[in-house]
Amino acid sequence: MSGPEGEEKVVKSELRWALAAGAVVFIIFAAVLWAAITMRMNPPSNIEHADPATLHMQGEFTESNLGTTVEPDGRVTVRMVATQFAFVPNCLMVPQGREVTFRFVSPDVIHGILITGTNVNTMIVPGYVAQVHTVFRQSGDMLMPCHEFCGLGHSEMIARVQVVPADQFRPGPDGRAHCEGQTPLVNTAAPGVPAGDVDAGAQAQGPLVSGEPSPDPAQATQDAVAAAQPATGE
């Protein structure tokens, strides 16, 4: 016996500490539970399928349907394709202070996004629709990079998000909103024009199922940056 305490005392002190540590852990956990229930702080978990092989050809994620849309009921939805090595579209305009729903898909490999300065964050897993709801509290330009390694062009895969004050958010008659200075994916086409006939703009390539990298991803991103520049400082 080298310590000053008897064995019973040792056990008692350990149990006291275990209770204290357990209480700390429980309190943190209770806070997490509280946030989940009252503030809807849940991770993105909608388990919704999207076939990587066909998503660009039919349905919600065809090229003409991508970008920011104000639905007839007033909800703002952003649809986006993440593909090696670009986002389509690569710049988004969204309103400040309104709920925005992001819906992402990937036709090729795993991607992921975050929007700097916010807690918008999701993995984009081929086979699934990744959906995130958020409200932007501040206006201004933000970065939306791909945050999961997706191949050699991964570092250049960045989109921009322009958050504008609600009174400056003016979607077109078709309910679509585009970045300032950005060639829209759909040139305010009259309703009824087939999506495939619309000029999609220089760098807004359709999702490539084959997974071939764009000829020069760095160039594509620089175009996007240049296109977004006029909006900076808003």
């Binding site: 350990e14 500490w17 275990a18 540590a21 357990g22 700390v24 852990v25 429980f26 943190i28 956990f29 997490v32 989940a36 849940n42 991770p43 993105p44 978990s45 909608n46 388990i47 919704e48 992921g112 964050n121 999701t122 993995m123 984009i124 897993v125 086979g127 699934y128 629709v129 990744a130 959906q131």
Partner: peptide
Amino acid sequence: LFMDPEHSTGFKFVQAALTFLVSVPTFL
């Protein structure tokens, strides 16, 4: 996989709770 779309909040929450338990042996 919290940020992954292929699992429900339910199982994510269950495993979050179990993760809190794994901090106990470190505190001990």
